[in-house]
Design a protein around this nucleic acid. Structure first.
Length: 884
RNA sequence: GGGCGCUUAGCUCAGCUGGUUAGAGCGUCUGAUUUACAUUCAGAAGGUCAGGGGUUCAAGUCCCUUAGCGCCCACCA
């Protein structure tokens, strides 16, 4: 066994085991009525995606849950797949063809979409390969894509059903328009960001008196070209007399009226607001109400159009500057004030959104939201951490209709057709909503029909993910078995986009919630708290970490620093802890394997069923293992991953390695040591496997074992009878004497190789017996020449004492005379600290309220502590006396 | 304008339903290398739990408040 290298090398093991798991088909899940289902649908990454730390965290958490439940004996399905990510993907492919000097319009719709599919063939599996690198145990044979034929059918089905139910409508409204992507966006896709801008005060002259003005304030002066009114509050004394008068809109010389509406805030700006119904949602409402003209002055790409007169073809921001210049020249720019405002930004390209009037398709959300609110309010769906519940409810309560049409090519084309003949006959626009392309117009019978050019919002397909991945609307045994899924693991950014909508879709189309628990993890940030992004250059690439430290190290460290739902501040050095831990597991296992008699691994622990059959150290470590197991289970069931992994870490390193293996080292060939160390290692590997799948498999395969892979073994079964609090206490006592000895050695700088004599006066007979029974252990671990158990509480000559030990007075024999003053100082210090503690406790006891109201166990505890402190102080005083 | 989170050791953070002397990792300091692991071991130093007020027998923990940092939502022209 000497050929096992002394360092764990992830590169030699990871790909090997991943391939093995795949070949053995160990990730696959089937509906099995005999087992409890556990299912997770992956938040489908964009096909354009490459793995970042957020993915690494998100998918590590899911993999831990899946592996954990699989090993618990449940039928665990992790449904993988990718999202076609309409705008993002189209942008990427547009960039790629731009290298050939092409625009998508040059290719035409069909050819362009062909190119996107080609692109997907070539690069679309990158993210999947990368997920495999982090150990994700998805059922890859089920991998879905939101543009798959079956999936697309589900998307159209949903559209048609919602339309038939009257929940989808088409209409002209002010929507969020990205002039760069040239498409409408939903409100969620246009997050507001603060901007430092200006408030411009413009003078609009009266028609009947050009020397008289109304001053309006605006942040977007370029939209003035589309003004069709000026509004004032009817209660505003300043303007009351002007209501109904006509103004001449400067630069365009359009006549516009002053109208009155209570919506106008008298306190803002001048109290008079220019009304641009085609370029502002508020103004749109005013326009509708007051029957104003809607003048759209921009092209879809953000340049001014022919209604903008001289400003035609200028970009909107260029036009702003020129318009201001021109107004200034005419003396119509009264002043400019700095003004901070916020504006929507395209979530794909960060361009400032233009509120834009256009005809789009919408989903009525209020009816869908009703039940989605109920299921969360009633706790049928639970958020972890809980606080996200409120965020969800708040959004759902104020839900707005959802703009679902996008003016791009890549996506599910809207299943709506129009009849050209009807249109040219000037009839009401005929809308044919159909799952398949109709042959002829149902009204006029003409075959001259065409499909709506728009595609659907990507999220309109994502919200079906928990059931469309099971080939809904077909009924299948899998859908029945695995739906509703168990847990959804995602990031907070995605609650509105996806989580909320999945809940609505699930309830509407499946008649049931899509998942029971929603675990929201934090955002991965850099060490300064900034979001990791390419443009900031602060990315830590998970693949680089895997390369340098190993996947298990990556997973360990990510999980260890992620407390429930808090953002993760990441520095590269954090992965050293994971790497070191993997190495520790490796070396402890290596040590065990080098000393393992394979015959003994067949021995059942139950041979030592009576506790006295095992020595204290073995009883202790077994108890500690099962206590840890119990706590880990509890932590995982409550989604406290960091707690679970920290428990495993400190158990293995600080208890199993530092104390247990060191304790049994000299007698490692003893049968009981052989059996216990082997059993614990093997069980520990199973327990750590969900967190660190590769190293656990590698070692487990090299240990004597039954079964083909650790990943389909059962989790260690909790053996309550082996949790032995008495053994834990006794081991603590032994360790504390050993620690005392080590401290004293350090205090007087005894050379490590120098053996010294230790005298101990145990506070109770039980402790004395324990020490007597385990002399060899204490001697070994403190490097003593002997252990002298004292009959009386008297200081032996030329010794120093450990004043802090709770269980015994510990004296280290020191060859020459000791520094009496120092020893006295130490003791006095301790007497003083302990006296203060005792006084504090006595004050508590003297308080009748405490005795009356506190938990009796606490009171009893306090009393006991006072007694113990009293005894300790007495002992210390005696020690001090003896020094005189 | 609302809402949420954070403030605990030099750094990054745990700390659950209030109850022993508040913990970890990293870093620092002392010592150790024929011994499974220097990616290691033994030990040490380091904290008025952001400030103020309150509730309670008892507050890092619950409530109020102030300040700083961060995030989310909102039709502030």
């Amino acid at each position: 066994m000497n050929e096992i290298p002394s360092r764990y090398s992830p590169k030699d093991t990871e790909d090997k085991w991943y391939k093995f798991w795949e070949e053995k088909n160990l990730f696959s899940a089937k509906a099995d009525p005999a087992k409890k289902p556990f299912s997770i649908v992956i938040p489908p990454p964009n096909v354009t995606g490459i793995l970042h730390m957020g993915h690494a965290l998100n998918n590590t958490i899911q993999d831990i849950l899946i592996r954990y439940h699989r090993m618990k004996g449940e039928e665990a399905l992790w449904m993988p797949g990718t999202d076609h990510a309409g705008i993002a993907t189209q942008n990427v492919v547009e960039k790629s063809i731009a290298k050939e000097g092409l625009k998508r319009q040059d290719l035409g719709r069909e050819k362009f979409i062909e190119r996107v599919w080609q692109w997907r063939e070539q690069y679309g599996s990158t993210i999947i390969r990368q997920l495999k690198k982090i150990g994700a145990s998805c059922d890859w044979q089920r991998t879905r894509f939101t543009m798959d034929e079956e999936y697309s059918k589900a998307v159209l089905e949903i559209f048609v059903r919602l339309y038939e139910k009257g929940l989808i409508y088409r209409g002209s409204y002010i929507i969020n328009w990205c002039p760069r992507c040239q498409t409408a966006l939903s409100d969620e896709e246009a997050p507001h960001r603060d901007l430092e801008g200006n408030l411009y005060y413009l003078k609009y002259p009266f028609k009947d008196n050009p020397d008289e003005f109304v001053v309006v304030a605006t942040t977007r002066p370029e939209t003035m070209l589309g003004d069709t009114a000026v509004a004032v509050n009817p209660k505003d004394k300043r303007y009351k007399k002007h209501i109904g008068r006509t103004l001449i809109l400067p630069l365009v010389n359009r006549e516009i009226k002053i109208i009155a509406d209570s919506m106008v805030d008298m306190k803002f700006g001048t109290g008079a607001v220019k009304v641009t119904p085609a370029h502002d949602p508020n103004d749109y409402a005013l326009g509708k109400k007051h029957n104003l003209e809607f003048v759209n002055v921009m092209y879809p790409d953000g340049r001014m159009n022919d209604l903008a007169g001289d400003y035609k073809d200028m970009d909107r921001f260029e036009a702003r500057e020129v318009i201001l210049e021109d107004l200034k020249e005419k003396g119509l720019l009264k002043k400019i004030e700095p003004h901070s405002l916020s504006a929507g930004h395209c979530y794909r390209c960060h361009t400032i959104i233009e509120p834009y009037l256009s005809k789009q398709w919408f989903v009525k959300m209020k009816p869908l939201a009703k039940e989605a609110l109920e299921v969360v309010r009633k706790g049928k769906i639970k958020f972890y951490p809980k606080r996200w519940t409120k965020v969800y409810l708040n959004w759902m309560e104020n839900i707005q209709d959802w703009c679902i049409s996008r003016q791009i090519w890549w996506g599910h084309r809207i299943p709506v057709y129009y009849c050209k003949d009807c249109q040219s006959a000037g009839k009401e626009e005929s809308v044919i909503v159909s799952r398949a392309k109709p042959d002829k117009c149902p009204i006029c019978g003409s075959a001259n029909i065409y499909q709506d050019e728009d595609v659907l919002d990507t999220w309109f397909s994502s919200w079906l993910w928990p059931f469309a991945t099971f080939y809904w609307p077909k009924e299948s045994a899998d859908l029945k078995y695995f739906y509703p899924t168990s847990t959804l693991v995602t990031a907070p950014e995605i609650i509105f986009f996806w989580v909320a909508r999945m809940i609505m879709a699930g309830l509407e189309f499946m008649g049931d919630i899509p998942f029971k628990d929603v675990y929201i993890h934090g955002t991965v940030r850099d060490i300064e708290g900034k979001k990791m992004s390419k443009s900031l250059g602060n990315i830590i690439d998970p693949l680089e970490i895997i390369n340098e430290y190993g996947t298990d190290a990556l997973r360990f460290s990510l999980i260890a620093i992620t407390s429930q739902g808090q953002d993760v501040f990441l520095a590269k050095e954090r992965f050293e802890q994971g790497r070191n831990f993997a190495n520790k597991i490796w070396n402890a296992s290596r040590f065990i394997m080098m000393n393992l008699d394979p015959v003994q691994t067949k021995t059942c622990l139950c041979e030592f069923s009576k506790s006295e059959d095992l020595d204290i150290i073995n009883r202790w470590i077994l108890s500690r293992f099962y206590s840890t197991l119990k706590q880990v289970n509890k932590a995982l069931d409550g989604y406290k991953f960091n707690e679970a992994i920290n428990l495993l870490y400190s158990f293995f390193w600080h208890e199993f390695c530092d104390w247990y293996l060191e304790s049994i080292k000299a007698e490692i060939k003893e049968k009981e040591n052989q059996v216990v160390m082997y059993k614990i290692l093997e069980k520990f590997l199973r327990l750590i496997h969900p967190f660190m799948p590769f190293i656990s498999e590698e070692i487990w395969q090299n240990l004597p074992h039954k079964g083909e892979s650790i990943m389909n073994q059962a989790l260690p079964h909790l053996q309550e009878q082996l949790i032995d609090k008495k053994a834990e206490k006794e081991a603590d006592m032994l360790f504390s004497v050993i620690r005392s000895a080590r401290n004293l050695r350090a205090e007087i700088e005894v050379k490590p190789e120098q053996k010294v004599l230790l005298s101990v006066y145990a506070h109770t007979k039980a402790i004395k017996k324990l020490l007597a029974d385990n002399q060899a252990l204490v001697i070994k671990l403190s490097n003593l020449e002997g252990l002298n158990l004292l009959e009386a509480a008297r200081r032996p000559e030329k010794t120093i004492s450990d004043v802090e030990n709770k269980f015994a007075q510990v004296f280290l024999h020191f060859g020459s005379l000791i520094d009496i003053a120092k020893e006295q100082g130490k003791i006095r210090q301790e007497i003083s600290t302990e006296s203060k503690r005792k006084e504090a406790k006595e004050r508590m006891m003297a308080n009748p309220e405490f005795v009356k109201k506190a938990d009796p166990a606490i009171v009893e505890n306090t009393e006991r502590e006072i007694r113990e402190l009293e005894e300790k102080i007495k002992r210390l005083e005696k020690l001090l006396d003896e020094l005189r």
